[in-house]
């Protein structure tokens, strides 16, 4: 829960302070705008989230298999 709270707060802050972020981005030497940078970071973050979810699903599938196997063998 706190993860998503921080996420939404950060997102709101980025929107509110987009102009200062723009200036920071130009100072750092990037050619894109602050909004574009926000998009790039958001996409990278999404990829990371999807990857983590994939690993979690994999673990769940393994647990389901083990449970199903236990049930199968218990019936004999």
């Amino acid at each position: 829960m706190s993860f998503w709270m921080i996420f939404w707060i950060l997102a709101a802050l980025i929107i509110v302070f987009i102009k200062p972020i723009d200036r920071l981005v130009i100072k750092l030497g990037f050619s894109s705008s602050g909004i574009n940078l926000a998009f790039y970071l958001a996409v990278m973050f999404l990829f990371y989230l999807i990857f983590k979810m994939r690993l979690k699903i994999s673990k769940l599938e393994k647990d389901i298999s083990n449970l199903a196997r236990k049930i199968t063998l218990m019936e004999k």
């Binding site: 389901i64 298999s65 199903a68 196997r69 049930i71 199968t72 063998l73 019936e75 004999k76």
Partner: peptide, 19 residues
């Protein structure tokens, strides 16, 4: 032996092995 859900051939072999 009967799996309660479809798991795949690998899983079926492991179940068989354990039995």
């Amino acid at each position: 032996l009967h799996h309660p859900i479809n798991l795949g051939q690998g899983a079926a072999l492991q179940t068989g092995n354990e039995y």
